[in-house]
Amino acid sequence: MSSPERVLRERTAIVGVGYTEYFRDSGVSTQTLALRAIVEALHDAGLAAHDLDGVACHRLADSADPAQIAQDLGLTDIRFVRDVFGGGSSSVGTLIDAAMAVATGQAETVVCWRALNSRSEGRMGAISGPAATAGDAQYWMPYRHLTPAQLFAMHTRAYLHRWGYGAEDLGRVAIAQRANALLSPRAMMTEPISMDDYLGSRWIAEPLRLLDCCLETDGAVALIVTTPQRARDLRQVPVLISGAAFGGGSQLTSNGWDDLSLSPARHLAPRLYAGAGMGPDDVDVAELYDAFTPLVLMQLEAYGFCSPGEAAGFVAHGSIGSGGELPVNTHGGHLSEGYVHGLNHVAEATNQLRRTCGSRQVAGAEVALATSQPGVVSGLTAAVLLRRDA
C-alpha cells in the first residue's frame, strides 16, 4: 500500500493566487477581505465563481464563515467545505485538505483562504474566554504566561542554550528577511535594518526582541487548487503539489517533549520528502513559517538543510539571502512583509515557481518548500513541496 503522502504526489495543482493589500487598519470586515482575495485569485486563474465547488479556510474565530463565503459567491451546491480552527500550525494544512478533496474526487476546484484583521480588531496574542484554560494553558495561566511571545520565548531560551546561539544569530534572520521585504511591493516594512537596529529594539519577552516578532496585519490571501489536467488549460503556469504531510507537535508541559532544542517538524520532514520523491537538495527556495526568528533556524535544521546546531552558521554565511544557497522567505516573511498566518508563504512559493516575482525572483526556481508553524508549543504542523509544471 502506498503511503498517504505518496498518494497525493502531483495529483493537484495551485492555479490561482489572490491578495488584498496588507493594512494596519483595513477599515472593512474580514468577510470583505476574504472575498476580495478570492475574487483576485479567480481572476488570476481565469476562472469564475461558479467554477468553484469547494471552500476551505482556517481561523481563530476571527474570519468569515466558509458557508457564508460560499453564499456570497453565489455557490448553491458546494461539494466540499472545510473550516479549520487553528493558528499557524493549520495554515498549510488547510491547503492540504483542499488538495485531498480534489485528489479524491470530492471536489474539482477548491478555494482556500485566510483573512484576518489582527491589527485593527482582534489581536491574536490576546487571551480570554474558555480557550484560555484549555489543555496546557491551565498550567500557564496562574503565572500569567499565555501570549505567543511568552511561550515561544521559553522554547527559544532552551534552543539557544543547547546550541550556544546568541542574539546576533537571531538578528541575522531578521535582517535578511527585511532585505527581501524591500523587494516586495506588498511589504508593510520598507526600511532596511542593521544589527544595531536589531539589538536596540525593545524586549517583548526575553530573549525575543521586537524585531524577532512577526507583524500584526490586516489582510487576506486566497489560493485555488484543482486537477493538473484542468490546470493546464488555465491562465497560469500550474504549480503542482508534489508532497504534502501533516505532523504532530508538542506543547511545553504535558506531551513528554524531551528535547526542546529540536522542533517536531523533524519527524514530518522524512515523510514529506519520501512522498514527493525528493530531498533537501532538490529545494530551490524555502518559505518557512516565521512568527518568530528562531523558528527559521529550527526549520533549517528540521528539514535537513543543515545539521542540528549548524543553522546559525548557515545563516551567517549568507546562505538564506537572495543569492544564497537556499533563499528563505523571499517576500520578507511574517517578520517584514505581513502576517497572514501562513498562506502568504504558500502564495510566495507559488509565485516563485511561476517566476513572476520580479527583482526578488530566484533564478530557475523549480521546487519550493512552504511550511506551517513547526509544532512548537502547539499540537500539529504541516508542510508542502511544490514543483513548477514542466
Rank of each mutant, 00 (worst) to 15 (best):
235 R>I: 00
195 M>Y: 04
30 T>V: 12
193 I>D: 01
132 A>M: 14
105 G>M: 12
260 L>F: 15
157 R>H: 15
276 A>I: 01
65 D>W: 08
243 G>I: 00
364 G>T: 07
151 L>H: 01
155 H>D: 08
204 I>G: 05
71 Q>P: 00
168 E>K: 09
61 A>E: 10
118 S>K: 13
16 G>I: 04
258 D>F: 00
145 H>N: 05
315 V>C: 02
247 G>F: 01
106 Q>F: 15
294 P>L: 02
122 G>I: 13
211 L>Y: 13
229 Q>K: 08
347 A>W: 02
128 S>N: 08
17 V>M: 10
217 T>E: 14
2 S>Y: 05
383 A>Y: 00
19 Y>Q: 08
190 T>M: 06
199 L>T: 10
123 R>H: 11
296 V>H: 02
378 S>V: 15
376 V>E: 10
244 A>N: 05
229 Q>A: 14
379 G>D: 14
153 A>L: 03
124 M>L: 10
66 P>H: 12
103 A>C: 07
222 A>M: 08
335 L>I: 13
39 V>M: 03
52 L>E: 10
286 A>T: 04
324 G>S: 07
386 L>M: 10
58 H>F: 15
152 F>K: 03
370 A>N: 07
246 F>G: 08
174 A>W: 13
1 M>K: 09
347 A>L: 04
346 V>H: 00
115 A>V: 00
242 S>W: 11
6 R>S: 15
44 D>G: 03
110 V>H: 07
268 L>T: 03
313 G>N: 11
215 L>Q: 15
358 G>D: 10
290 D>E: 03
27 G>S: 13
113 W>Q: 06
169 D>W: 06
240 L>I: 04
240 L>C: 06
64 A>I: 00
187 A>Y: 12
231 A>K: 02
223 L>M: 06
93 G>Q: 10
356 T>C: 13
295 L>F: 05
385 L>I: 12
256 G>S: 03
